[in-house]
Nucleic acid binder design. Structure first.
Lengths: 166, 166
DNA sequence: AACAACTTGCAAATGACTTGCAAAACCATG
DNA sequence: CATGGTTTTGCAAGTCATTTGCAAGTTGTT
């Protein structure tokens, strides 16, 4: 979720990135800004259709690719489901994700340690890091307690929580 | 690659994990032990067929799932190609990967910082971390220098290099 | 050896994502 | 604000890695 009132509108962001302003693009950016969760193409399509019934799933895919390329949207990988692409509005401070394998809850957290790994890597290997995929999976406090349950089943979109590691 | 002579044989590992010992399983474990790279199902199938021509691709997939579940094999995610599952023999010290987006080279590295993030997370959130997917992508030193090239094309299996961040 | 439970090979099916194409929308430009 | 070259869109038909149903073949146990 990213509703900072001082942030540029979707239209402005598109123009700033040198991309054409079209209804599907503006809508997708807004949906991602408003989302409490990390959405995949299918879910974005479902939501987009409520406001723009003529929109097509392939348009969603194509635009997510364009927006990702333009840096307006970021792709995330979660839990065991790397077979699905999830997106988040590109913004905010750097953060990472923990996904509960049982209830699907996503916890977002910050820590300077990952940035340190990145800097170390660049310094010591001379590489130029462009992306980092960092995700932890396991059982959240509640599910770890209620360990008895068999396994995950509903890994539907879940609200996420943001934490700062001290 | 994992050829430590003191390590249990594939048969022993299967039995220890309470899994049935079958030719395809033993072969897959051995191929992963011997591999210099991280292999996907297709490549494992290709190699397995040289020794066990009757083996079927779906058997490879099914067994990789079984072996992963049993903890005998680990799944890795690389570069932009999260759409393909790569595997590595479960073993050795914890390590992480950097993939060059241009030449496909994989650099493995170690650092205590990730373990620290993990410990911090568990301590501060009370979660139980089961897996961590950590992968960095960018340009390796050589490709960063030869920046001129258009983009990646051959992301064939590549040998990987192991580095210890000081 | 005899069987119940698990595995395999084969062929067909999934499901997420992609692509070809003609019509429609965007955005300088005049 | 009409014009037109370029980009996007909707739709339908692909891809392609991975999965699944099933009958036949193995495994490990009694």
């Amino acid at each position: 979720m990213n509703l900072n009132p001082s942030m540029p509108t979707p239209e402005e962001r598109l123009r700033a990135a040198g991309q054409r302003v079209t209804a599907p693009r503006v809508l997708l950016i807004r949906l991602l800004d408003e989302a409490e969760e990390h959405l995949d193409a299918e879910e974005l399509y479902r939501r987009a259709r409520r406001e723009l019934p003529s929109i097509n799933l392939s348009t969603v895919y194509r635009n997510l690719a364009v927006l990702k390329e333009a840096g307006l949207v970021e792709q995330r990988y979660f839990a065991r489901d790397h077979s699905r692409e999830y997106f988040e509005s590109a913004v905010q401070e750097e953060h990472y994700h923990f996904t509960c394998l049982s209830c699907g809850k996503v916890v977002e957290f910050e820590t300077p340690l990952i940035a340190k790994v990145r800097v170390d890597l660049e310094a010591q290997l001379g590489v130029d890091i462009r992306h980092a995929c960092i995700c932890f999976e396991g059982l959240c406090a509640e599910c770890a307690a209620a360990e008895k349950r068999t396994d995950a089943d509903g890994v539907a979109p879940q609200k996420s929580v943001r934490i700062q590691l001290s």
